[in-house]
């Protein structure tokens, strides 16, 4: 019986840990996010809104929402290189778009943040990303 309780507790702790790690920036990170006005221009249209992100434990956690607050996507950038998109909005939720954005975001977000504006152009796909710091 005692062994059962120990195993159950360990399983619960493991599951709780997994869900927190998967869903949100690690608890205890109270540093406010950096917020940028976002413009992404595709050959056939554009997305604008706010991109906000936080650094925690060597990773970067962020979101892109349009002006109306509708989620465009969430992302986790691991070790500055590997980018995983989550909750991608319907019209962008196609494997080739996810793959392109996942490759472009590390290039954009690894730039020198001392600047108020960040720009990255994917010349191959003709996509232009622009972030302008929002000073609150």
């Amino acid at each position: 019986m005692k062994r059962f309780f120990i195993l159950s507790s360990l399983l619960l702790l493991f599951l709780a840990g997994c869900s927190v790690q998967h869903k949100v920036v690690p608890a205890g990170n109270d540093v406010p996010s950096q917020k940028y006005k976002m413009e992404v221009v595709f050959p056939k249209g554009e997305i604008s809104g706010i991109m906000a992100f936080k650094r925690a434990g060597g990773n970067m956690y962020g979101t892109a929402v349009n002006e109306f607050g509708v989620k465009v996507f969430d992302f986790v950038l691991t070790g500055g290189k590997r980018c995983k998109l989550k909750n991608v909005t319907g019209f962008l939720n196609k494997w080739y778009i996810r793959r392109t954005i996942s490759k472009d975001l590390p290039e954009l977000l690894n730039m020198d943040f001392a600047e108020d504006a960040l720009e990255y152009v994917n010349y191959r796909q003709n996509i232009k990303y622009k972030l302008i710091l929002i000073k609150e």
Binding site: K23, V24, V25, A27, N29, P32, S33, K35, I50, A52, F53, K54, Y61, G62, T63, V65, E67, F68, G69, D74, F75, V76, K86
Partner: peptide, 28 residues
């Protein structure tokens, strides 16, 4: 407008004004 974003555990706040004229005129 308050947007709750769980991945960064934050609320993104925006504000402004709205004008509406019946039936299809809206300025947000």
């Amino acid at each position: 407008q308050k947007k709750q974003v769980s991945i960064i555990d934050e609320v993104i706040t925006s504000s402004g004004v709205l004008y509406y004229l019946r039936d299809t005129k809206l300025c947000w």
